[in-house]
């Protein structure tokens, strides 16, 4: 069992790397987006919210297919990408990263948006009238206040990226160490009737997901506002 896992190590490492970078990018870009969107009251708000939520309901293969057609080397965007970056977008790590970012976006942005919407108005107004500037309010008040939701957002995004399959198959294919993530390696094992390896890999994925969610629920309780989580 251990040997079979060893041969799958590149897939596991690639999956963890993909999930980690995806969450990182989503946190860096998602925080200001969610913060601005929480304060935005314009008429395009429902549209923007729908756009962010779309990957929740869209079959991953649809998303993958659109990305594949948009960035195929024959397309305008695909050619542009090759000209600028020097390598093609589809069937590359960058390709599956961009796909993952879009695919996991609602899982990261929605908890942040909910947290910011709930507290943004009140806490921000009171900080503002007390003379605390916008940036300081965000960094010293809003972020610490919403840390529980931020941790949830990151963990959910991470766990969700671990389990991607259809999207990656569409846009990334099945290239070992480049685009072959755990779920695809698992699919390969089953296809070639290597059930022992399939079991080992499934178990590894199950454990990683279970552990990250358990950690989330354990530590997030203490990150809740003081007085709620204590003593339970």
């Amino acid at each position: 069992m251990i040997e079979s896992l060893q041969s799958d190590w590149p897939a596991i490492a690639l999956t963890l790397k993909l999930a980690f970078i995806t969450v990182l990018v989503l946190l860096v870009f998602g925080l200001p987006v969610a913060w601005q969107l929480a304060k935005y009251r314009g008429r395009f708000k429902p549209f923007i919210e729908a756009l962010i939520a779309l990957p929740l309901v869209l079959p991953p293969t649809v998303l993958g297919f659109y990305l594949l057609s948009a960035f195929s080397p024959q397309s305008f965007l695909g050619k542009l990408w090759i000209d600028v970056v020097g390598e093609q977008f589809v069937f590359s790590f960058t390709g599956i990263l961009v796909g993952s970012i879009i695919y996991s976006m609602p899982f990261v942005i929605q908890p942040m948006l909910a947290a910011f919407t709930q507290i943004a108005g009140h806490a921000q107004l009171s900080a503002s009238t007390l003379g605390i500037g916008r940036f300081k309010t965000f960094v010293f008040i809003i972020l610490p206040m919403t840390r529980a939701s931020l941790v949830s957002a990151a963990t959910l995004g991470f766990a969700h990226t671990l389990g991607e399959f259809g999207l990656i198959l569409m846009i990334g294919g099945n290239i070992p160490s480049e685009t072959q993530v755990v779920s695809i390696a698992l699919f390969n094992h089953v296809e070639s009737l290597q059930y022992e390896s399939a079991h080992a890999l499934s178990l590894a994925l199950l454990i990683i997901s279970m552990v990250s969610l358990t950690l989330l629920y354990k530590f997030n309780r203490s990150a809740l506002p003081l007085g709620i989580g204590a003593g339970k």
Binding site: T129, L130, T137, M145
Partner: peptide, 28 residues
């Protein structure tokens, strides 16, 4: 002017002491 409403919106992720010190530290 500083506005104080009847709903007394405090920063509820910290204790009373930090509510005061946050303002002392960060208010312009």
């Amino acid at each position: 002017c500083v506005y104080v409403g009847s709903d007394a919106v405090l920063f509820d992720h910290v204790r009373v002491r930090e509510n005061l010190t946050l303002v002392i530290k960060h208010s312009a």
